[in-house]
C-alpha cells in the first residue's frame, strides 16, 4: 500500500476488517512471542545460520534493498512498509483524511464540518481562529446582516440587574434566606437561558 495509490483506495470487505485490525494491533503493539515458537521460526527459515548465502539469496536481498530504496518492487519491501506504517503511522494529509472519510461515510465531508473539526481541535487553533476572524469575518459582518444578528443575540441575553422588582412587599424580619433563595433561583434560570441563546436554541 503506497501513498501514490491513495486515489484508488477501496474499502475492504467487512469480514476482512477484523483480521486487518488484529494485524495492525499486533504490528503497532506486538505481544510476547513464545520462545519455543521463536526457535521454531528461526529453524524453519534458516537451515544453517552460519552457512554462506546462496546466489539466489544474494539476488533476492539486492532486489529487496533496491525496492526499499524506491527502485522496483519486492513483496518483502511492501510488507516492511506496511509494518512501519502500522508501528509508526504518519499523519494523514488533510485531503487524504477527507477522501477516506467521505468514502467510508458515503458522502463528502463538508467544508463546515472540517472547519468545526479544526476549530475545536486545539485551543491554540481556536484562539488564532477567533483573532483572525475578528479581522476577516466579524468586522466586515458588523456592517451587514451579521452585525444585526450579533446584536440580536446580545439583546437576547439576560443581564445582571437589580432584584428589587422581584419583591412587592416590605421585607419581613427573618425572611432573608427565602429572599436569597428566590434571587438565586431566578438568576440560575436566566443563566440557563443565556446558554441556550448562545447555542442558538430558542
Amino acid at each position: 500500500m503506497t501513498r501514490d495509490s491513495s486515489d484508488d483506495l477501496a474499502l475492504i470487505p467487512e469480514e476482512q476488517e477484523e483480521e486487518l485490525a488484529r494485524a495492525l494491533r499486533a504490528a503497532f503493539a506486538p505481544g510476547q512471542l513464545d520462545p519455543a515458537v521463536n526457535e521454531a521460526l528461526i529453524a524453519a527459515a534458516l537451515e544453517d545460520p552460519l552457512a554462506p548465502p546462496t546466489d539466489e539469496e544474494i539476488a533476492e536481498s539486492e532486489r529487496l534493498r533496491d525496492a526499499l530504496a524506491g527502485h522496483g518492487s519486492h513483496a518483502s519491501a511492501d510488507l516492511a512498509r506496511a509494518l512501519r506504517a502500522a508501528a509508526a503511522p504518519a499523519a494523514l494529509r488533510p485531503l487524504d483524511a477527507e477522501r477516506v472519510a467521505s468514502r467510508a461515510l458515503g458522502q463528502r465531508v463538508s467544508r463546515r464540518g472540517r472547519l468545526l473539526v479544526v476549530t475545536f481541535g486545539t485551543v491554540t487553533t481556536a484562539a488564532i481562529a477567533i483573532a483572525a476572524s475578528w479581522f476577516l469575518v466579524i468586522a466586515p459582518a458588523l456592517d451587514g446582516d451579521g452585525g444585526a444578528q450579533l446584536a440580536a443575540q446580545a439583546e437576547a441575553l439576560a443581564v445582571s440587574r437589580s432584584t428589587a422588582g422581584m419583591f412587592s412587599e416590605k421585607f419581613e424580619q427573618g425572611a432573608t434566606t427565602a429572599r436569597v433563595d428566590r434571587i438565586a433561583l431566578a438568576r440560575s434560570r436566566e443563566l440557563r437561558s443565556n446558554r441556550y441563546a448562545l447555542w442558538g436554541v430558542r
Binding site: 443581564v159 440587574r161 432573608t176 434566606t177 433563595d181 438568576r187
Partner: peptide, 24 residues
C-alpha cells in the same frame, strides 16, 4: 440600578449559590 449590566454568568451564580448556602 435597573440598567443593563453584564450577562448573567456562572460567576454571579457561584456567588448567589454561596450566599444561599451561608444563609441556610
Amino acid at each position: 440600578d435597573g440598567d443593563a449590566g453584564l450577562p448573567v454568568d456562572p460567576v454571579l451564580l457561584a456567588f448567589l449559590s454561596r450566599a444561599k448556602s451561608a444563609h441556610h
